[in-house]
């Protein structure tokens, strides 16, 4: 089964482009522009997402809070943090909150896809266990 992906980023050009590019590579992907929209989507479409690509700095609910709530409502979903902010602090907190990986923008699509695949495998293994 193809990976089902949710991309959360307030940067419209980035969001639209990456969603389309991932779609072109055969993955089921949906994009939202805020943390609250992501939570709404996940709650409205349970068990339809394997991996979330999550930005940190967003207006309203920031990425770390969104991550915490995703892990609270949908613990089976793997989250990859993708941010322009390379703080070790965010990286540490992200991992503490259960993020699968922490990637710094800009990042090549092939690297993103690799990490998505790894997260998918890890999530499936965890669910199987």
């Amino acid at each position: 089964m193809a990976t089902r992906l949710l991309v959360v980023d307030d940067e419209e050009d980035f969001l639209r482009s990456i969603v389309m590019r991932i779609e072109l590579r055969g993955l089921a992907v949906h994009g939202v522009a805020s943390g609250s929209a992501a939570l709404d989507y996940l709650r409205g479409n349970p068990d339809t997402v394997d991996v979330v690509l999550l930005d940190i700095r967003m207006p309203g609910m920031d990425g770390l809070e969104t991550l915490r709530q995703i892990k609270a409502c949908c613990p089976s979903v793997e989250v990859i943090v993708v941010t322009g902010h390379g703080s070790q602090e965010f990286s540490r907190i992200g991992r503490e909150l259960g993020a699968f990986d922490y990637l710094i923008k800009p990042i090549r699509l092939d690297v993103i896809l690799e990490r998505i695949e790894a997260a998918t495998r890890a999530g499936r293994k965890r669910r199987a266990d």
Binding site: D13, M20, L24, G84, R108, L109
Partner: peptide
């Protein structure tokens, strides 16, 4: 440096993805 990098990284990521999308399409 962190502030500047962050401010640049976001538009840069958008530029990269937009260019990548152009190539894809």
């Amino acid at each position: 440096a962190a502030g500047v990098a962050h401010e640049i990284n976001n538009p840069l990521a958008a530029i990269g993805e937009l260019a990548g999308l152009m190539e894809d399409l």
